[in-house]
Write a protein that binds this DNA or RNA. Sequence first.
DNA 1: CTGGATCCTCAACGATACTG
DNA 2: CAGTATCGTTGAGGATCCAG
Lengths: 226, 226
Amino acid sequence: MTNQHYGQFCGLARAAEIVGQRWTLLILRDLNVGRRRYSDLVAGLPGIPTNTLASRLKELEEAGIVARLAPSGTERAVVYELTPRGAELGPALDALGRWGAGGMRTPREGEIVTTASITAALRVAAGDGVVPAEWDVAYTVRVGDVETHLIMRDGTITAGPGPAENPDLVIAAGPQIRDLLAGELDAHTAISTGAVQLEGDASLFERFADSLHVPYSPNVPAEAPA
Amino acid sequence: MTNQHYGQFCGLARAAEIVGQRWTLLILRDLNVGRRRYSDLVAGLPGIPTNTLASRLKELEEAGIVARLAPSGTERAVVYELTPRGAELGPALDALGRWGAGGMRTPREGEIVTTASITAALRVAAGDGVVPAEWDVAYTVRVGDVETHLIMRDGTITAGPGPAENPDLVIAAGPQIRDLLAGELDAHTAISTGAVQLEGDASLFERFADSLHVPYSPNVPAEAPA
DNA sequence: CTGGATCCTCAACGATACTG
DNA sequence: CAGTATCGTTGAGGATCCAG
């Protein structure tokens, strides 16, 4: 209940008192994608102890970052969502996610992807999300059994959970999609090697690959050389 | 030694495994200001247990984020600095610090400021740091007994630890400087109420106040309504 | 079935003392 | 100066149970 304090009158210290708690950053990532029920969060955060999730939600609510919406009307479940103040964390989450992705090459043993993680990755990869205004394309992006959508419309890119309604192109891939975003795997090779499978207008794949980018960072250390 | 893992192939999760550790964000903030000795870090992080600092530095070194420079030549002390990969965290630290500062009004009981916290705050407040190219001003900014400098030159703003060499203006203030940066306290009032004291060319104060900005966020919750 | 609360165990953190 | 050693305390992890 009593949060840890660093005793410094410093924005980063105040932020660290909140997001420095274990699991909190991932909870916020999931909520940043959209409102979620308690059980959705449990499902999207494999391994989180239920008491930890309950504590975090309570702390975040007290901090004014998360709102707890009691069941009402057609909704018959408790729903959590970010407050405006919580939504302001978006740029910081993106910056951290971009940095972390830079050092991320292949999955470690047992690592999974979730809807929120793919959605967040696509948003980060979209950068400022500016594309030619005349583009109007809907993609469904499938990684493992997770489906997300990415829309290029009105000059911007938006990404969200779940498939697109009428996708022009469905892109299915494994973790190798990371190499594509890093620019280490070009669109043609990705298709010819089977790293990605396409359903729909395959000519739209190139602008997908060109518009999304999260480079690898140089000098990434060996992982746990034991 | 064995870091906590979240089991997700996700940039934010990877970042959280590192910066989600207690004290790590503040250690990185201090190192982001410049290379530091072990004892500098201890001094800049009041309350950090020495074994925790040692553990964090070792973990960060193994992660390729911090470099440990053994004594050599004129240097007769161990020095820590960010690697290039560690320096890439800068934007994320800034984004987090800006968010945290938005919810920060007055210091809590016992909260202090440090050289690194003020330096980081000035950098965040400078934003993209673009000012008219013809400006060439050096400020010393003193908060409590902490001295930092801020230079506007060649169209950009830079901030660092320690006083300016030949300051055009020395600005001394308490935590109320926060209100100034938030735009809640205008330059004239700040001077007339004694919230800030100036030594030097006071006419340069206005461009300081105009160029630096970290707004308060709306809907900041009451602090611990108990 | 959702949304938690409780209990217990253990690893991580925190404070202090001490050393190469 | 730059840490390690020791030991007490806290919080996370995991399983289970309970209320609406």
